[in-house]
Each structure stands twice: as structure tokens, then as C-alpha cells.
């Protein structure tokens, strides 16, 4: 597991549900075919209404037209991030677009679990409303040893909740590697 994640923030509001993360009409593409799966990056967060996309200004596309990678690799979200469907295409599309970490006030259960068990990115919990502190485009450093987030643009540091007992799965890489390490399935 990386000890530090650095990059640019993309800020969203609360209740960002899985239909906003990846609208259902796009759930038809293969997740394993390297070329076809780029469609997931292309449409990542495309269901977020314009005014809510890239706060506080809004109307900032997460992925530019014709691209499948985003210039933003850290998502800052409000409460109940990832609510809705169990579709693993949601965390997968964010990873394909280049997301390495999400920092939200809270998560919907299945999305959080999928992010960790599938090893897509690290879902972290903020202790305060970072959506009101951080602006889309700010340069961010997340330190996973001290559980702090530094906004390099605004020169401010915030503490984050620790990952708790799911850190073992994150460090292993995903639930399969964790199960192999623990002897639950043969390696």
C-alpha cells in the first residue's frame, strides 16, 4: 500500500449515488477487456448534474470529452457517498479514470465494501465537512501513516479517521490476497 497519495481534488456533494457515478445505460461494457473497459473511465461520474460536478463552481467535467482518464485523482465527497446500487462498476469506473482515494464524510455500505474488497482505491473518512473547505483543483496530499490530509493549495491540514480493521485487506490488495495470506484459500 502506498504511504502517500498526491494529486488534484474533485469535490462533490452528499448522497452521490451509483447512478450518478456510472449511469445504468453504461453497465453493459466488459470490465475485464482492457480496451472496452476504458468506456467506464470515459463515463465515470457522468451522471452528476452539471451544477454539482466539481464544487464549489460546478460544471467541471470529471473526465474531458474523448478522454478516459481524469486530471483529478482524489475525490472529496459529502455524506452517504456511493449510495444506491451494488454495482461494482461504480468503484471500478473511478479507478479506471485514475482515482486513487476518496475522502468522504460517510459511505454507503456496499460501495465501501466493494472499494476495499476489490482493491480499487482507498476510501477514507473525513472528520469534518471537507467539501466546504476544499475546492476542485486544489493540490492534495494524503498521508496514510498519520491519517492526515493536507491541502497544499490552501496550506491547511486535516485529520482523517483511521481505516480500522479493513486495513489488512487494503494492505493485502484485495479480499482474495487477504484470504490467501490468512490461509482461507490456497495460495
Amino acid at each position: 500500500m502506498k504511504k502517500k497519495i498526491q494529486g488534484r481534488a474533485f469535490v462533490l456533494g452528499k448522497n452521490i449515488d451509483t447512478d450518478q457515478i456510472i449511469p445504468a445505460e453504461h453497465l453493459v461494457y466488459s470490465l475485464s477487456d482492457p480496451e472496452e473497459s476504458k468506456n467506464y473511465g470515459k463515463f465515470a461520474l457522468s451522471g452528476v448534474p452539471g451544477k454539482d460536478s466539481g464544487l464549489p463552481k460546478g460544471n467541471i467535467p470529471f473526465v474531458e470529452d474523448g478522454q478516459y482518464r481524469s486530471q483529478f485523482n482524489i475525490i472529496i465527497g459529502g455524506s452517504n457517498f456511493g449510495c444506491g446500487s451494488s454495482r461494482e462498476h461504480a468503484p471500478a469506473c473511478m479507478e479506471i479514470a485514475g482515482v486513487q482515494a476518496v475522502v468522504a464524510e460517510s459511505y454507503a455500505r456496499i460501495f465501501y465494501r466493494n472499494s476495499i474488497d476489490g482493491g480499487f482505491f482507498i476510501p477514507l473518512e473525513a472528520k469534518q465537512k471537507l467539501t466546504e473547505e476544499i475546492q476542485t483543483g486544489d493540490e492534495i496530499t494524503i498521508d496514510l501513516q498519520t491519517y492526515t490530509l493536507t491541502n497544499e493549495t490552501q496550506k491547511k491540514t486535516y485529520s482523517l479517521n483511521s481505516l480500522g480493521d479493513v486495513i489488512d485487506i487494503i494492505e493485502a490488495g484485495n479480499i482474495f490476497e487477504y484470504a490467501r495470506k490468512s490461509g482461507l484459500i490456497p495460495s
Binding site: 470490465l31 451494488s86 461494482e88 456496499i110 465494501r113 466493494n114 474488497d117 476489490g118 484470504a179
Partner: peptide
Amino acid sequence: TGIGNTDAAFILGT
């Protein structure tokens, strides 16, 4: 309860 593809694949195998 609902789960994602990874967890479902884990169940298929184990």
C-alpha cells in the same frame, strides 16, 4: 444482502 462482483466471485469459489 447485496454485494459486488468481487465478493460474489469469492463466494462462487469458496
